[in-house]
Amino acid sequence: MSETILVFAEHHAGKLARPAWEAIAAAQHLAGDLKAGVVAAVLGENPGAMANELAQADVQQVLAVASPLLREYTSDGYAAAAAQLIRERKPQYVVFSHTYQVRDFAPKLAARLGGGLASDCLGYRCEGRKVIFVRQVFQGKFYADVEFVGAPPYSVSFQASAFREDAVQRGPAPAPVENVAASLDASTIRVKPGERFREAKQAVDLAQAEIIVAVGRGIKAPENLEMAKQLAEALGGELGASRPICDSGWLPMDRQIGSSGQTVAPKLYLALGISGAIQHQVGMKGSKTIVAVNKDKEAPIFEVATYGIVGDLFEIVPPLTDAVRKMKSR
């Protein structure tokens, strides 16, 4: 029998989310290289409809893992149900997308099963039967090759868009769906999820902005924001920021761009003193043109920049603002 790659399909309130398909794409890719079969699993109270949707993908089988105790996501419930499944099916690899939900339960699951979890991977390469996973270390300044040691299951979570949703291969016919009843004990589910909400109404909708001037920790002090504000004004754009600027209260949270803030795709994005951590990049890399000003030529932001300026933003920005004003007044 060939090896199995089990892939976890995340959903929110019964709707499969993009990370589910990205994980399937990753699992299919890995299965192709390892000549293994892909089994997709979706957990929930009534996961049947989602399982049928997943069955459109070219996979060996879809497992609809059901229990009333899986109605809402909890780390306790998901880890217990997934551990049961993995112990029974003995997959070689378990594939996830590196989402907040996966961060919340996959390390627990892997620890319970005694296997490793290579988290937030960018990709992998094969050397014979050996699979080498690639992940970022030092906030993206370096990459690391990672190998599993010891016995499977080997769990791996891939970064958002490491594999693309549209790369999912569809099957010639729907894959068989198997209903699995998870046997969970209510007393082992200790965490109680409550209401989901968003903070008070957003004052700005950066998603609508055509030009965004975003500042990062390179701006150094709140009083220096004025300089960036002037550039934004001259360009007729909005001011945005990386998370630490909002964490420090220098700008309100509705200006934060990234995985825990807003996702934007303006025609022009200027990143001033932003290193370009993945959590920031996911929120802005869809921008048409990206300009990065950073004094560190190795900063990861330059990997997504159209135009790069290696230098001190305090020297670059004022003449740039002047030049924009001059251009506009012509």
Partner: peptide, 8 residues
């Protein structure tokens, strides 16, 4: 993600 929160 994306500006949402949850009480637990």
């Amino acid at each position: 993600e994306a500006g949402w929160f949850e009480w637990m």
